[in-house]
Design a protein around this nucleic acid. Sequence first.
DNA 1: GCATCCATGTAACCAGTTACATGATTTG
DNA 2: CAAATCATGTAACTGGTTACATGGATGC
Lengths: 223, 223
Amino acid sequence: MRPHPMIELAILGLLREQDLHGYELRRRISDLAGLKPAVSFGALYPALGRLEGAAAVKAVEAATEPAPAVPLPPTGSLAGEAAAFLARRRGPRRDRGAGPGRSGRARKVYGITDQGEQLLVELLDDPATDERSFSLKVAFCRYLTPQRRLELFERRRADLAGRLAGERTSRRTMGDRLDLYLRSLREHDHQTIQHDIAWLDGLISNERAALSGAADLEEDTTS
Amino acid sequence: MRPHPMIELAILGLLREQDLHGYELRRRISDLAGLKPAVSFGALYPALGRLEGAAAVKAVEAATEPAPAVPLPPTGSLAGEAAAFLARRRGPRRDRGAGPGRSGRARKVYGITDQGEQLLVELLDDPATDERSFSLKVAFCRYLTPQRRLELFERRRADLAGRLAGERTSRRTMGDRLDLYLRSLREHDHQTIQHDIAWLDGLISNERAALSGAADLEEDTTS
DNA sequence: GCATCCATGTAACCAGTTACATGATTTG
DNA sequence: CAAATCATGTAACTGGTTACATGGATGC
């Protein structure tokens, strides 16, 4: 399976934390990206099908998380472990044989497999650093080793820095008899990229600190 | 023709300023968006074909701009009016009838028609304010009336403000036991949106000032 | 003379969308 | 009992991409 589809990265990343059914996955993907009008079912269900076909994911029946660590105070939170609970509570109707063969109309809870976890890491390691995929990768980068995570951030940083450089030359070419709005747009884009780079620099220095901290520990242990 | 395709907006916007051939259009679209790896020919040429079919655009032979206003100092600038000049200079081979009928391998220079200009304004007026289309619309918003331009900016602003609001509620739902990276990502997105809003506020107040200035003039003239 | 850029176009593919079909459960 | 929300899925379409085919002009 080729690694392109964003949606599969999102699915695996979310399932890695807990079992979920399609409908709930959709909502979580939406507010994961925060932005844009939510991913569509017409993309989601086929993606789940593909992942199931590739054995990266499989339908599960009962809950996986034994019990919520915190006692779930009645703060009205409908998300989180509650979803798994609901999936348990009002599960597929058992009357009139509705096994995984020909489904009635019940929710299908998916869990990630070992292959799925492996695939997730592969997708995260994929070198592409476009806007869309990078956000998703950051969202799940906790599943990468610190080293790979650092590389991810550095790749993105290089990408943005390159963009700034390219911008400069194209600006030279145009002279500065640019339209007012176009100029404002460019200026704003420029600032946005710089802001992104500053953010990445923060992430990068954190990673480096963590890495050298771990190295120190190792040194201590080894010596 | 339905108004969706971004690429057609870009083509019309660029042709509105000067006649260009496909290859040159591609480069200009690329550094217009600054970002991303350039639009592909496989999208560009069919789009030109569609626009030509819709009579929004037509193939022209000679140059349109009579002469560059500035004397073009030898600063090595290869873009700008120079492109039109080149198109003139080494145009389609005139030997062995190569009219607009069956082309050999020569550049085809396109110009915008009256319908095209009309279509351009329609596309700019389209209410969608997603990331991609909004940038393009700003790039060509000089072809809108001040009133429409102001509305464009305000629409986008409302969109972003709404996003911030939605974010707040989804954050409440999650509590704050969020992954470190996910939290950082969200925080950064939040800041980016605020930055965008601040930029828009600047554009909006400029537009309003211009509008009231024009109103004052009108008042003066009228009274 | 060969590589490289200029230039146009087509075909196959791709990741998504909208619209549709279907049905169970909850709530006013 | 009707409307809304939960839930799964398919088919048609869309706005692109990559890869391919073709060939002229320039530079080294």
